[in-house]
C-alpha cells in the first residue's frame, strides 16, 4: 500500500532533504509539502538550491539524505507509470532542433497513449495544445527557427502534453516578453483551475511568484527561510507597514506592525485636538511589497548563516 492512500490530498512530501556535493552542502534539511491542486512557487537567489530540489523531486538526482514522496512514490525508484503522471519543464533545452513543432509534440505525446483514462485522456490533442500555448502560426516551423520565447512555450507544451497530475516548471518564463509572460500566467492559472494540476514552479521573478502562487517557499543557502502566501510573508516581516499622511502642511511617515490601530489612534488625536490642529489629509497605508519582504528575509537568513558559501 503506498502513502497516497494514507494522505490522498498531498502531492509532494519532502522531509529533512539534504544534498551534499563533495564537502559542499547545498541543501540543509529542507522540509515541505505540496497539497494536490496547489501552485507552489519556490523562490530564491541563484545558488539557493532551487534547481537541485526540483531535480530530486523529478527523480533526476539522488539526495544525500532525507525522505521524498512524490505522488505516493519515491522519485528515485518510481517506474514509468509514475513518469506518465509527472510533467517536467527544465531550465533550458536545445534538443530536437530539426523537428517541426507539430511533429515533435505529436511524437512525444504518443508515448502517453497507454496511460489514457476516461477522466484524464492522454495525450493532449496536439492542435489544441499548440493553440493553448499560442504557437498555431508556427506549427510547421522547425524548432531551431523559433525565438527564445516561442521555444520556451514549446517546452511548456511538451511538459503538459501528457496531462500531468503534477507539473515541475524550472524558471519557465526566463526570456519571455511581457505579453508572452502574461499568456503564460493565464496558462498556469487554467491548468491549475480547470485540470486540477499541482504545480511546482521556481523563479526569481517576485512579481511572477506573487501572481501565480497559492503559496511561496523562499529558499536561501539551502534552507527554507519562509513559507506562506504572499500576504502572510509580508505580514511575517515585523514592523514593516508604512503609514503616510499630511498634517499642518508637513508630510509625516510612520512605520508600524499594526497600521489599523495606529490610524485609529491618529484620528482620535485629531478629534481631541479639535480646530486647534489642522485635519489629516492624503492618508496612505502601504503594505511592504513582496520584493522588500523577500530581500529582508534573504538578508536575515544570510546573517544567520554567514560563512556558508554555496554553489547551486
Amino acid at each position: 500500500m503506498n502513502e497516497q492512500t494514507v494522505a490522498p490530498d498531498i502531492a509532494v512530501r519532502v522531509s529533512d532533504l539534504r544534498m551534499r556535493y563533495g564537502s559542499n552542502d547545498v541543501l540543509h534539511g529542507v522540509s515541505f509539502t505540496i497539497r494536490r491542486g496547489e501552485v507552489l512557487v519556490l523562490l530564491g537567489p541563484n545558488g539557493a538550491g532551487k534547481t537541485t530540489t526540483i531535480e530530486i523531486l523529478e527523480g533526476f538526482r539522488l539526495p544525500s539524505a532525507g525522505e521524498v514522496t512524490v505522488l505516493g512514490e519515491n522519485p528515485a525508484t518510481a517506474g514509468e507509470e509514475w513518469r506518465s503522471r509527472v510533467g517536467v519543464v527544465l531550465q533550458s533545452w536545445r534538443d530536437h532542433a530539426r523537428w517541426r513543432v507539430w511533429e515533435l509534440l505529436e511524437h512525444l505525446g504518443s508515448f502517453y497513449q497507454p496511460y489514457s483514462t476516461p477522466d484524464r485522456p492522454r495525450p493532449y490533442p496536439t492542435d489544441e495544445l499548440i493553440e493553448t500555448v499560442g504557437l498555431t502560426e508556427h506549427r510547421g516551423r522547425k524548432v531551431s527557427t523559433l525565438s527564445g520565447g516561442q521555444r520556451r512555450r514549446l517546452d511548456v507544451a511538451i511538459g503538459i502534453v501528457g496531462r500531468p497530475e503534477l507539473l515541475f516548471l524550472d524558471e519557465p518564463t526566463a526570456g519571455f516578453d511581457p505579453a508572452a509572460r502574461r499568456d503564460f500566467h493565464d496558462l498556469v492559472h487554467s491548468l491549475s483551475d480547470l485540470q486540477d494540476t499541482t504545480i511546482l514552479l521556481t523563479t526569481h521573478d517576485l512579481d511572477e511568484a506573487e501572481k501565480l502562487a497559492d503559496r511561496i517557499l523562499i529558499l536561501n543557502h539551502g534552507r527554507i527561510v519562509a513559507d506562506g502566501s504572499a500576504d502572510e510573508l509580508a505580514r511575517a516581516v515585523a514592523g514593516s507597514a508604512e503609514v503616510r499622511w499630511m498634517q499642518d502642511g508637513v508630510r509625516q511617515v510612520h512605520s508600524t506592525p499594526d497600521p489599523t490601530g495606529f490610524v485609529r489612534e491618529l484620528f482620535a488625536q485629531e478629534r481631541v485636538g479639535g480646530d486647534i490642529g489642522s485635519s489629516i489629509t492624503d492618508l496612505e497605508v502601504q503594505r511592504p511589497s513582496l520584493e522588500s519582504t523577500y530581500l529582508t528575509m534573504v538578508s536575515q537568513a544570510q546573517e544567520l548563516a554567514p560563512a556558508q558559501e554555496v554553489v547551486r
Binding site: 513518469r83 534538443d95 532542433a97 502517453y112 496511460y115 511538451i158
Partner: peptide
C-alpha cells in the same frame, strides 16, 4: 551529441522514452 543537447533527458522525462 544528444546527451549534450538534452534530447536524451527529454526522452527520459516521458514514460518509456
Amino acid at each position: 551529441t544528444e546527451r549534450e543537447d538534452g534530447t536524451l533527458l527529454r526522452l527520459k522525462a516521458i514514460p518509456y522514452g
